[in-house]
Simulated scan of single mutants.
Amino acid sequence: MDTGQKAPIGRPRGFDTEEALERAMRVFWGQGYEGASLTDLTAAMGINRTSMYAAFGNKEELFRKCLERYTEGPASYGVRALREPTAREVAAAMLNGAVLATTGAAGPAGCLGVQGSLAAGEPGSHARDTLAAWRDEHVSYLSDRFQQAVDEGDLPPDADPGLLARHLMTVANGIAVQAAGGVTRDVLQQVADMTLRSWPPATAPAQPAA
């Protein structure tokens, strides 16, 4: 029976965009920007190129969306670490999170934000620049957090927040590269623990309980 209702204009997408984005993220994570071909991406996403372009834009735009998803998902330990009450606990959460995220069974070894375009040539220059800015942004967040620690007496007054942030991020990035090369979680955890043992002491130690 004709109800008089008309079908909606345009065909609905026949796939789950969130699931497709998750799958594309894992392709970029495992293969890097240039290593991930459009054929690899669309096969993993279960769609054709026309659908990919319509839903996500070109490869560069898809990569940016995947990086956002990675930041909010597997790499979200970085944001959580900033909320820790002391600078040392921030550093510990950052390094421990890096070890777990880059060696976990839930995703490829390594870090999308580090290895995504390290070896990219000119075709991948935009992705390389995007990731460089992404890493620098995280260094800036850490630097601000460590400046707060200096101001509160949680770090020595002569501590350099920017250098501490860069040092911590360099170790975390190195952990990711080593993980991608097959170094085990246990070994990388030892690296993280060694770094934490040399962390600057607080200038205002906690008072003993009465």
Results as ranks from 00 to 15, higher is better:
residue 53 Y to R: 15
residue 40 D to S: 07
residue 43 A to V: 09
residue 95 L to A: 02
residue 196 L to C: 03
residue 44 A to K: 06
residue 178 Q to L: 15
residue 42 T to S: 00
residue 30 G to T: 02
residue 129 D to A: 13
residue 150 V to E: 07
residue 60 E to F: 09
residue 128 R to M: 01
residue 138 H to P: 06
residue 33 Y to Q: 14
residue 85 P to W: 09
residue 61 E to D: 01
residue 49 R to M: 07
residue 21 L to T: 00
residue 37 S to Y: 03
residue 175 I to P: 02
residue 5 Q to S: 09
residue 46 G to S: 01
residue 141 Y to N: 05
residue 34 E to H: 06
residue 138 H to T: 02
residue 76 S to A: 13
residue 91 A to M: 04
residue 4 G to W: 15
residue 56 F to Q: 09
residue 170 T to A: 07
residue 7 A to T: 00
residue 127 A to S: 13
residue 165 A to N: 05
residue 101 A to T: 03
residue 160 D to T: 03
residue 177 V to P: 04
residue 176 A to R: 05
residue 94 M to A: 01
residue 47 I to T: 03
residue 116 G to E: 15
residue 53 Y to Q: 14
residue 53 Y to K: 12
residue 20 A to G: 02
residue 4 G to T: 14
residue 129 D to M: 06
residue 19 E to L: 08
residue 18 E to H: 11
residue 117 S to L: 10
residue 65 K to W: 08
residue 5 Q to I: 12
residue 108 P to F: 07
residue 45 M to R: 00
residue 184 T to M: 05
residue 39 T to R: 12
residue 18 E to K: 10
residue 79 V to M: 08
residue 44 A to T: 07
residue 183 V to K: 12
residue 5 Q to L: 13
residue 110 G to P: 12
residue 22 E to L: 07
residue 27 V to Q: 08
residue 200 P to I: 10
residue 185 R to M: 09
residue 68 E to W: 03
residue 43 A to D: 13
residue 95 L to G: 00
residue 141 Y to K: 11
residue 201 P to K: 10
residue 70 Y to F: 06
residue 99 V to S: 07
residue 38 L to R: 06
residue 175 I to N: 05
residue 75 A to S: 12
residue 185 R to A: 14
residue 78 G to A: 12
residue 29 W to E: 00
residue 60 E to M: 11
residue 108 P to M: 03
residue 169 M to G: 00
residue 152 E to G: 01
residue 147 Q to P: 04
residue 129 D to S: 11
residue 152 E to S: 14
residue 35 G to D: 04
residue 47 I to H: 03
residue 37 S to H: 01
residue 89 E to N: 00
residue 78 G to M: 14
residue 96 N to Q: 12
residue 91 A to Q: 04
residue 82 L to H: 05
residue 100 L to P: 01
residue 34 E to A: 10
residue 42 T to G: 05
residue 127 A to M: 08
residue 56 F to V: 11
residue 19 E to Q: 09
residue 103 T to R: 11
residue 190 Q to S: 09
residue 68 E to L: 02
residue 103 T to I: 05
residue 52 M to A: 12
